[in-house]
Design a protein around this nucleic acid. Sequence first.
DNA 1: ACCATTATTTATCATTTGTAAAATTTTATT
DNA 2: AATAAAATTTTACAAATGATAAATAATGGT
Lengths: 187, 187
Amino acid sequence: MQLTQILDQVYPLPQEAREKIIGRVGEVRFGKNHLLMRAGRVEGNLYFIKSGIVRAYADKEDQEITFWFGSEGETIVSMNSYVAGRPGYEHIELLEPCVLYELRAEELQQLFQEDLQIANWGRKFAEKELIKTEERLISRQFKTAAQRYKELLADSPGLLQRVPLSHIASYLGITQVSLSRIRSEIR
Amino acid sequence: MQLTQILDQVYPLPQEAREKIIGRVGEVRFGKNHLLMRAGRVEGNLYFIKSGIVRAYADKEDQEITFWFGSEGETIVSMNSYVAGRPGYEHIELLEPCVLYELRAEELQQLFQEDLQIANWGRKFAEKELIKTEERLISRQFKTAAQRYKELLADSPGLLQRVPLSHIASYLGITQVSLSRIRSEIR
DNA sequence: ACCATTATTTATCATTTGTAAAATTTTATT
DNA sequence: AATAAAATTTTACAAATGATAAATAATGGT
C-alpha cells in the first residue's frame, strides 16, 4: 500500500503538505517476530504499514495481553510516547515480515506546529482511533465473547489465517480455552 | 471552573486563539435528570462542564450501559457526531444540576480550518481522550472487577457520593449485585 | 414525621469463564 | 517421511459472575 493512500484515508492532504510528510519518511523492513517497540521506553518513531501484520501487547504478570492488530495501511504508534513523551506500556511484535514507512515523531511534531493541514491530519488520526477504541470498549460490555468473536470474523476475515488463536483470544479478552469452546460451539 | 482553565488543561492556547473560542461559547444551565443528548441523533453542540456531573450511556436491549462520567472541567462530545457527522450511540444525562459552556460543533470545525493552534488543541484533545480510553480498555483485561472498583475509588474519590451505584456497576462492566458483593468483601 | 419510592444489599441457584493438565492436531525441520 | 516443536482442543474441576427474588436501608415529597 502506498504512503499517499495511507495518509489520505486518514484525512486528504493538499499536495504540498503531503510532500512534507513523504519527504521525511523512509522505508524499512523487518522479519517475522521482530520486536519493533518495547514497553518502558519512549519511542522516537512512528510507522505506517506498507505490508504485513503486527500486534501490540502489554505484559501482565506472567502473561501477555494483545490489545491491537495492525495491518496494511494502519499506523503504528506508541500513544504514550507520541502524545505525552512518556514510556509506553506496549510491545509491538511483527507477526509477518513487514515493510514499513518510518517517520521520526519529533519531525511530525515539528510539522504539526508549521502546517495547518498536517495539524488537522493529526487531529483526524487521533479522532478516528478514538472512535474505534471507544467502540471496542463498549462492545466489551454489550456483547458476549461469542458475539465478539463472530464480529471479528466478519470484520477481519483474513485475520484468523494470519494470527495465532492465542493472540486472538487475548484480544477478545478471554482465554484460549474459552475461545476453543466458542469455536467448537459454532460449527 | 473557568473556561480558560478548561481549555488550557487540554493544550495551552495563545491569547488570541483562546478568545476566538471563548467568543463563540455561551453558558447554559440544566436540571438534574435532563437528557442533554440522545442516541440516534447528530448532535450539533459540544459542552464544557463548568459545574455538575453527567454520564454517557448506551442502550442495550432492555438495559442501559454507562460508559463515561464527566464532571467539572471535562468536555461532553458525541464522538460520532463530532468526528464523522454520524448519529451517536450515546445518551448524555445530567446526574446533578449543571452549568455548561456550549459551543456549536460547526463553529469549532470552522476554527480548525482557520487557526493552527486551535487545530492542535483539537488534536491534543482527541489524543488525550484516546489514551484514557485505551487505558480503560486494557484495564478491563488486566484487572478483576474488584481491582477496577478500588482504582475508581482511588482515582475519583468523590464519585461514589455523587452517582448511584447502579451506574458505577455498569461503568465497571459488572452487575449491581456483583458490585455489592465486592463492596461487602472490602470492608 | 410518615409514607411511598428508590437504592442497595443479601440469599440462592444457574451459567459462564478460568486454571491446569493431558490429548490431539498442525507446522516446521531434518 | 519421520521427528520434534508449537498450536489447538478437550477434559475435569474451581472460581467468578449473572439472574431472580426478597429483605433492608436510604431518600424525597407531602
